[in-house]
Write a protein that binds this DNA or RNA. Structure first.
Lengths: 389, 389
DNA sequence: GCTAGTTTGTAAAGCTCACAGCGTATTAGG
DNA sequence: CCTAATACGCTGTGAGCTTTACAAACTAGC
């Protein structure tokens, strides 16, 4: 027997579905009365009542007894989602810094810790620093690893299905690091390792520049150029985790694009290689001839890869993010012109609104998605940290 | 009130869901006994029994009374999905031909009609020919327009959200043709106009070279080069319908790639421009020096665009289709080498197995998808042709 | 030809769930 | 103080699925 799908639903399953429906109606809403929930879900008031009480006894919701009532009529009891029932972690392991965010199930950030890291630090040193940041974040929020329901770590470079950056990565010696295995010593919950561009794209859709769009090309523009894709509202990983790596194609010029900025004539010797781009953008803003030309050539090269992505996917929005997005005022208009010239249908081009924390925020969001997925597929029995399968 | 989601489910809805579950279990299976359906859906035998009887009275299923039984025990009544309850059309409006396929709800083709068309024919002439082909296909199958539940028409060129090929199209004078409006005079059912590459991709996943994959890049290689994308098992249209049009980017060389074949030195003057490529492939197979070089250069240019798609999406399979897929023996290996050289992760590269009918087949499949979507979202009351919304 | 065994069809009992309806509690306003 | 409006809580009703039980139909083997 090919026992694949058990789609049949009986009464308990119906109750489960309606419970999830109530949970959905509870989340991302202010504390709600039974009548409001009834309207929101389409269920009858008595049904909502018993389900809500069940959620309270299970620990998924909490009750607010009526206080000062402003409306007419008998003051209503209010239910709210117990966002504190569980917590998730999102960590960005960057070249220069490690940033950990700890949030509740609403995605509200409870605590965050940021440490600077030497760009040349080897894997052992970086992993030790990661452990320290995570520990500090947990203790700072008064949590233990068992309180955490999902962990997502962002790294630079394409992440394969085993969670390793086997294709390439700018982190020194990082190619063979098995981050998930390293963290699984401390955490029993699901652990996901993901590419930083993809996570930044996720963040930008969550609470950034593209929260209204389902089809997004996110450009992470900095000394390295990368892309993250959201298609039909879902983060696109690729069959092997290498989606969005258009920069590897020499014809689209992403590899040499930042060189126009770094090698711009006129950069003072006192400016280090990491700050050269910022200097050039500033100089261009003040009318420096060579700087303006360098920015122009940079945008032209950036636009080729962007156009390849846009022509392939025909997105609604292109988000210009990454370190260079601070200079979006200089980039956006010429980038639009170039894309318009190269593409069939013109997408909106917007600047990132989240800045440098977008990667860690995206990691947080992916952790929340992981929790949600388990919640809404496996059903909700009691709020406990899920185990890895 | 932001009345967006009415997710609550009551008892009738539960019955509806289970009915759909039974329909799913019935489709693409041989006639099934109640016990088999019970196992397949997870529902109890009596529940399946009443639901199946309901489906029969509604006209969705038919009963096979037990005949010659081979097994032990009382011979079972068998139920089967009534694929003949409705029919769908898939039409390919090509440059040289128009092909219409008429199939039942199982996708089994009942009748097909193919007419040749002059490549220079204008819109009026082509539309008249289309009407004639559709009429012939209907009468040949003994059907009327009211028997048809969905119509999909494939055209060359990116199709915008209004169903027009406003960006570009090689069909003479076709840019402003509103095909959906033209057909809506005869058909009340949903009418979809879609790009030919996308539909060929759909067909190749349905019953072609990539039926096992969810992430597919389909290359339509001929005198024009195009691409269709399937991502997470879903056809990717793009926000404005222009996904996959990477060929519009000059840097990837798709526009000039077929020129290597057409302008290959040594092609006899007796060979027309449309047959030059076929001649070159044949000559290359027989060792003709210039022909081999032309094929090599063609593949190199084709591979640049393919690599752009592969790097962007990281698909599981690349399908080499279109007119040139008859010469896949010459193309596949060098194409693999080039993609491997340019990309991070190597996808499988396969030749199309459907040939020239793939576009019409894909149109058929999209019609079936359209019907299924309405079936499984709006619920099944009685088998009647759906109306356009 | 007859009996044991197996599977199907069908009916009845029981349980769970959601809904409709009604009475009660609480507040605002006249 | 009384009325209208709103929300809570309880009970009865009906729908739908499951389990159990039993009759019907067929094969296999003696």
């Amino acid at each position: 027997m090919t026992e694949v799908t058990t789609t049949g639903a009986d009464l308990p399953r119906l109750r489960e579905l309606n419970s999830l429906s109530i949970v959905r109606a509870l989340r991302n809403h202010p504390p709600s009365t039974v009548t409001e929930l009834s309207r929101r879900t389409g269920l009858s008031r008595p049904a909502v009542d018993v389900i809500a009480q069940g959620l309270v006894t299970d620990g998924w919701a909490s009750v607010l007894e009526p206080g000062a009532s402003s409306a007419v009529g008998r003051p209503a009891r209010r239910y709210q989602f117990r966002a504190g029932a569980g917590h998730v972690l999102g960590v960005d392991v960057g070249v220069h810094k490690i940033l950990a965010l700890l949030a509740d199930l609403d995605g509200d950030i409870v605590h965050s810790v940021r440490h600077a890291v030497d760009a040349q630090a080897g894997p052992a040193e970086r992993l030790a620093e990661l452990d320290e940041v995570v520990s500090a974040c947990l203790t700072g929020a008064g949590k233990t690893p068992t309180d955490i329901w999902a962990v997502t770590v962002a790294v630079t470079g394409a992440v394969d299905s085993s969670g390793r950056t086997s294709f390439f990565t700018p982190l020194p010696g990082w190619k063979s690091v098995d981050l998930a295995a390293h963290l699984s010593v401390r955490f029993d919950c699901p652990i996901v390792v993901e590419n930083d561009c993809k996570l930044a794209a996720l963040a930008e859709r969550w609470k950034g520049a593209a929260s209204d769009a389902d089809d997004i090309v996110y450009l992470l523009a900095g000394m390295r150029t990368g892309a993250g894709l959201i298609i039909d509202g879902v983060l696109r990983r690729g069959f092997g985790g290498a989606a969005g790596e258009i920069g590897a194609l020499p014809h689209v010029r992403w590899l040499k694009a930042p060189g126009h900025l770094q090698n711009c004539p006129g950069v003072p010797e006192t400016v280090g290689p990491d700050d050269a781009a910022a200097w050039v953008f500033n100089a261009a803003r003040e009318g420096h001839k060579a700087a303006r030309s360098a920015v122009s050539r940079y945008v032209k090269d950036l636009a080729v890869g962007a156009a390849a992505l846009v022509l392939t996917l025909d997105p609604q929005v292109v988000v210009f993010g990454g370190g260079f997005s601070r200079s979006a005022d200089l980039v956006l208009d010429p980038l639009r012109r170039e894309i318009e010239r190269l593409c069939l249908r013109m997408p909106e081009v917007r600047a990132s609104t989240l800045g440098a924390d977008s990667v860690a925020l995206g990691a947080l969001k992916l952790s929340l998605n992981e929790v949600d997925q388990r919640l809404f597929s496996a059903g909700l029995s009691a709020p406990v940290a899920p185990r890895r399968t």
